[in-house]
Each structure stands twice: as C-alpha cells, then as structure tokens.
Design a protein around this nucleic acid. Structure first.
Lengths: 339, 339
DNA sequence: TTATTGAATGCAAACGTATGCAAGGAGATG
DNA sequence: CATCTCCTTGCATACGTTTGCATTCAATAA
C-alpha cells in the first residue's frame, strides 16, 4: 500500500540491496538469481516502475520513436500509423508524432525537436522533403527508416513495396485487357515511389509494344488528379485505361469519370490504383489495385529500425516487398485472369 | 562551431553567469535584461537547446500529451489526430500515441505507460473503455479531455458536437422530406455520442408524430451496419430513410443498399450520416450529413487541456459545439431547403 | 546618512536512473 | 593449500535541469 512516486531506491531498501542492484535487475544486466527474486518481489509489492525519462537522460536514448508524417488524408497512412504504433508498443516503444511542415525552414524545427527528445529512431512517412530531414538525422547518429519511400543516396534504410515490378504488373494487366490508349496519372515525381511505379509501368507497356498516351504528375492530390483526368479525357486521345499512382487519387479519378464526365468504369475506361486501402474494396469503388502488403511492410520497418537501434553499426537496408494485383471491377479483367 | 551536447553549463560559462541564470532565462523566471541578452547570445552561438527530458524529470511534467486512440479506420479520427498534433506542436507540446487495447486488463498497461512518461495531459478519442481509463488518470491528477465522447460522471472534460440537437435536426430534415418509414442505425450504445444522437433523433421524430421503424446498434462497424441494413430492408417495414450514427457506417449502408440490394439512393431510400468527413463530399457517396466542426472541436480540446494543465484547480468543462446539416444528394431534399 | 525593500544572482541540493570501479566471494586449477 | 578467474555487489558519480535559500547590490524611503 505505497503511494506517490516509488523509486529504485525504495525498492532497494525493501529488498535489502543497493540501488545499483535494482537498476541492474530492471535493465537486464547480470545479477544473481536470488537478487533478482528479492528485487522483483519488492518491486511488485511497492508497485515500482522504472522511470523512462530518467533512464533516457542517462543513456541518451529514450524508448520513443519519432514518426514524421505530412498528411493523413490518404487512408494508407493512418493505417500504417496504427500498425506501427501497435508493433512498437509491443516492443516497449512509443510513437511521438511530428507533423512535417511544408515550408522549408520549419524542417529545422522538426529536426531539433526530434533530437531534443532523444528519440531512439525515426520513421518517415508521406513526407515530402525527406532528403534534408533524413540526412540530418542520420548524420546525427539516429537510425532512420523511410516508410513507403526510398532514396537514392545510400546510408538510409527504406521499406517500400516493389514499385517497379508493381508498375510492370499493371502494365501487363492492362495490355492483356486489350486496352490501346493507356494513360498514367503518376504519384508525385519528387517521391521515389511515384517515379518507380511510373518507370516500371512504362517499361512494362513497352514490352507489349505500347506507350502511354499521357503521363501526368498527380502530386498525390485529389484535385490535381481530377484535373488530370479531365485533361486526358478531353484530349485528342481519350484514354481507355488509366493507371493511377495510388488509390487515394484513383478515387478522385473515378469520381470525375463517372460523376462529372458521365463515363462508365470500366466499360468506357478502366481504372487501376495502387495500395489497396480498405476503401478500395468498398462497393462504391471496387477498385482493381496493386496491394501494398501493409503488415509486412510494417513488420520490416520495425525490424529494421530496432535492429539499427540495437546495433549502430548495422548497415542500412533497402527492403522491397512484392504485392499482388487485386482484381476487382474498376478495370476490365482479361480472359483467363480470375477475378 | 560547437559540437556534441551543449548544456546550460556551457552557455553559462560563455555568458559569464551561473548555470542557474541560464535556466531562469529559458524557463521564463525573472532575470535582468542584460543577463537575458548575454545568455541568449551565448546560447545562440553555441546552439543550445534546453533538454526537455531533464526538465521533465525535475518538474514531473513533460511537454508530452498522451493521445489514446482505439482505431483509425474512421477518417474522422486521423484528421483529428493531424489537427490536434499540429495545434499542440504550435504550443510546444507533442503527441505520444497510445493505441488502446481491447481487452480489459491491458488498459492497466496503458494507464501505467501514460504515467511513466509523465504526460502533461491526455486526450482520448474513439476509445471504448474510457470510463476506467479516464477516471484513473484524472484521479492521478493528470488533466484529461475526452474528444468526441462525453461521460456522465463529473470531473472530466469533454468536447463533442451538440449531438442531441444534431439528431433532432436530422429528424426535422427527414420529416420535412416526407419520409414515413424512418430507421436509425445508431452509434455504439456504449458511447455517449451514439446515445445522444439517437435520443435527439427519436425525440425529434416524436415532435412530428413519427417513430422510427427500427433502431439498431451499429457499433460504429461497417459490417454490423451492413447487416443492420439488410435486416431493416428485408423486414416487414422497409425503411424509406435511414439515419446512420456516423459517416463511416453510412458509407457501408449506402454500399449495401446500392450494390447488394439494388436500391437507389435517395430515390428508394434516403441516407443521412453524421460527421461530414471529407469522403462524404466525394461524388461516389455525396452524403447528406451533419457536420462536426472539426477545427473548432480541436481548438476547444487544446484550449481546455492546456488550461487545465496551466491551472490544476480549473474545473472540468463539457463543451458542445453545434454543427450544420450539410445537404447533399444521398437524401431527398425537402421543398424550400436549399441544397 | 542610514535603514529598508526588492530584484537579481549564485550555490547547492534535488529528480531517478545507469555505470565505471574496486572489493568481495565462490569456484576451479595446480 | 595457494593462486587465479570470474561473477556479484555496493559505492560514488554523472546525466541536465529546476528551485529553495542566502547573498549581493542598487534604489527608494525616512
């Protein structure tokens, strides 16, 4: 029946050992079995819990992971956040959220905040100016994993799906469906993810002797994607299929095609997305899309990050995870491809 | 051109003052103008930033707000998270995410984690077992604000929209539209939000001499809401209007009505939601819904929480914010109501 | 001029933990 | 039995702040 703050010193006194012993028991250092038992017992009786802040001050590393994120509109990211946070909580870590600002020099502030909190590691997601930010943090010795985005320069880990292969898969699919005028509304060109998907897609089409009738950067933005759709469909070569760089934009494309232009999906135009967010499975869209295996991506992200935290010398990794094409009804399904 | 950790002591030496003086300058305590200038100058030169963890250890309060959240499927919550985090960042706080577990005794763990991190305050959102959790934290002297959920017992602040009034508004709207067989798929009965909307709605209908043909608890779950829709439409009195307890479920209801049952919305059935998440405005749903004013709710939440943090004696408040009914095309719009 | 006030400042002790170091003790080896 | 080795343990210090207390000093009042 203790009350107030109970510290390692209290536990030590009750267990009849030194404060150091208590510390060692709870930080996993070596201690004799009897000491461990005495300490654990006293700790339980007193309701002792090690103070993570004090611990962080000594070791210089908190059990906090900084999650830098720019926007949460795209359903993919909140879901990732949820899974990441759960996975990290299981490992004794917690997620501190940093909203990434848009203006250049506010990155400065975020970097400082991250270091102030002595975060053990950083995950970036959906953030634009990753280059500066990740580089600076990595230079400061903080492990960084870029989630759903890569970077050419070495030294920084990343976890993505196999975007080039994914783009190619979609090219195969649309070509097999007999589409002739294929357009691509791409993910933001500033993101490796967007570039890779576009590259794989165009290369894939090329293998079938096809070339896209249009490639427009949608900037991961609904409104820009909608405008791109209008442009494509009112041009000299209206598309009969559009591959959209992610589901979030694909929904806007479908809305525009059906609601505004009065076209039928997939009878007039096939639409294919990328991500397979839950919304893609809803009846209103029923979107054919390439699934990013969220669970495995999260798992890989956590593994990589914690690995680098445990061993600072561990080299960075660039992990790519393949995902399947999920066939639904927003795109004509070729003969022989099972829905 | 300093490097590594620079502490208040370094600043003190360079400014020719004591370490205490530096502390006072940065913690806002009194200091002479000259001292302030000397310290600021030295600090800037050295790139000094106060260590928030060390500060938290002394004061017992970190600049961290615990956000307890159960799920992020419903678009309303990620958006709230985004806005809350931004608003708190502006005030020098940061959001530490705690995923609320479903099983009873894991609440224990969350409560302990929250206290371990000496969070300055707590915001709960979308979480079921709020009663235990909030009560325990409030008892421990940590300010708590429940976001989008209320609680009967006093002592705990909450910010919601005017749910009873909102339910009534929707009743008026559907009655004015000439609907005769009105059903309600309610928010989870375990949440004040769900109960209040249902109550306001039923009372509102009553004023028009109407009574719902069915009231089913949808538990804020798509699948349960879909099943409720089937039940309602296959019953003896198929509804000609359904008020759904939030947008998230309303989308499932519309999917079921249109995709599965082949009915037209709003020609066969009017559907009204609650929240006005961005998705509600998308062409595929175009959902008539009662808007929860997210920005104002966030503002009120932050104000209330920081207020209670600044002054522990401040009494708890229960804030209700009214929201407008947003007319779109998922429900028949009565004569004279402008779309 | 002297007494009084009040602000500004430095000193030193916390806060709760981790950890290098030296001492102790048990077991193994010769 | 003596020597060596290795594992435990306690002591003491460090981490970077805040804050109570005592001191200094200038400014005001008498």
């Amino acid at each position: 029946m203790p009350e107030g703050k109970v510290t390692s010193l209290h536990v030590a006194r009750r267990a009849g050992v030194s404060q150091s012993a208590v510390s060692r028991v709870f930080s996993g250092a070596s201690a004799s079995p009897q000491t461990v038992i005495k300490v654990r017992k006293a700790a339980e009786y007193l309701g002792y819990r090690p103070n993570p802040l004090a611990r962080a001050m000594i070791t210089g590393k908190s059990k906090i992971i900084g999650l830098v994120v720019a926007y949460l509109d795209n359903q993919f990211y909140p879901l990732a956040l949820e899974r990441l946070s759960n996975a990290l909580q299981d490992q004794g870590y917690h997620v501190l959220v940093f909203m990434a600002p848009n203006d250049e020099n506010a990155v400065e502030k975020v970097v400082h905040d991250l270091m102030d909190y002595q975060v053990a590691g950083i995950i970036t997601a959906s953030v634009g100016m990753t280059n500066d930010l990740t580089r600076r943090c990595a230079d400061a010795g903080i492990p960084v994993v870029m989630f759903n985005r890569g970077q050419d320069g070495g030294g920084i880990s990343s976890v993505t799906s196999a975007n080039v292969a994914g783009g190619a898969q979609i090219a195969d699919f649309l070509a097999a469906g007999g589409h002739k005028r294929i357009a691509h509304i791409a993910g933001w060109e500033g993101s490796s993810t967007g570039r890779d998907r576009a590259r794989g897609f165009i290369q894939g089409l090329d293998l079938h002797g096809l070339a896209p009738v249009a490639v427009i950067d949608g900037h991961y933005d609904r409104e820009i994607a909608a405008q791109a759709t209008r442009d494509i469909m009112s041009g000299p070569q209206p598309a009969d299929a559009i591959f959209v760089g992610n589901d979030h934009m694909a929904f806007a494309v479908m809305d525009t095609l059906r609601g505004e232009l009065g076209l039928s999906v997939p009878d007039d135009v096939s639409v294919v997305g990328y991500d397979d967010v839950p919304l893609a499975a809803w009846a209103a869209y029923d979107l054919t899309t390439l699934r990013q295996p969220l669970n495995r991506m999260v798992e890989a992200t956590v593994d990589t990050l914690l690995g680098q935290i445990a061993d600072a010398e561990r080299p960075s990794q660039k992990i790519e995870i393949e995902g399947p094409l999920i066939l639904r009804r927003s795109a004509r399904t070729p003969e022989g491809w099972s829905l």
